[in-house]
Amino acid sequence: MNRIDKKEAKHLLKQMMQIRQFEDAIMDLMARNIAEGGSHLYAGEEACAVGAMAAIRPDDYITSTHRGHGHAIAKGGSLPELMAEILGKETGVCKGKGGSLHLADVSKGNLGANGIVGGSIGIAAGAGLSIQLRGTDQIVLCFFGDGATNTGLFHESLNMAGKWKLPVVFICENNLYGMSVSVERACAIKDLTKKAVPYNMPAECCNGMDVLAVKDMVTKYAAKARTGEGPALIVCDTYRYYGHSRSDPRVYRTKEEEKSWRDRDCIITFGRKMQEQNILTEKEVTDLEKEVTAELEAAIDFAIKSPDPKPEELYKDVYFESPSS
């Protein structure tokens, strides 16, 4: 494993850079009060979404979380449309009605971020059931955080998926904290893979700071899900660089801990590794960075210049208007 070509290396690195710069840009836009409301940023966790998405097909589904920008980008979302959505603009992927917490694009298989922790895990099971009933060979990646593993719906849904052998790969992005409460303080067990045991599915831990490790792990269990062997739980150990949200002073963790994770930064380590293995040159890496910066500038410009939704949009889309038959 871990042998990749230049094209793939560039793709993975670029997507991680896109997510990082996207999140950094939102932090900046929030500081300047251009982005109103809250936003839960994915910076630090990029290897999870990018590695996982590199292991699946475009017609596969994902469900995402309140920290969902990275998933939306890695699942093929358009940077301008996603940025516009976060600013609540008419041109946003959800027409400015969803926002950061509800980024979704069903046409691209993204069944949505979610404002409720654990709220989308049942949806993932249902998408898996739909695949099974329709007899296609799609799969579902169901993302959630460590905090969600303590919710009832997590357990109900894993039981359902385990019992019916649904083609769902459950991916727990364990960033160590549910808002401020650490896994150790919240969970009766520390090893989250054990939460799959009663549901008769395999579970493995993986280095969520290593995009190739994530990709390999998801590839392994995606293949099983696709061939009818049923679901699995993957726990990716990772870290969010920013706080839970914009107002988080991060009193529950130390600067030393933050630094120790930044030292393992997924973009820096992957870029370095690709150069060491002579897959990418230093120039290629810096060029990629510049390319992404230009894309982000264009996306931000598009979002800021986009119009707000028209007042008549308020009552649109509550219901589908003409019944199907």
């Binding site: 469900t63 949806i123 249902g126």
Partner: peptide, 21 residues
């Protein structure tokens, strides 16, 4: 027949409904 899992029954119904069922 499902397990006694009302939240998952609704969630799974929703997931199936938005993916073609």
């Amino acid at each position: 027949d499902t397990a006694i899992s009302e939240a998952a029954i609704i969630g799974a119904g929703l997931g199936a409904a938005i993916t073609g069922m």
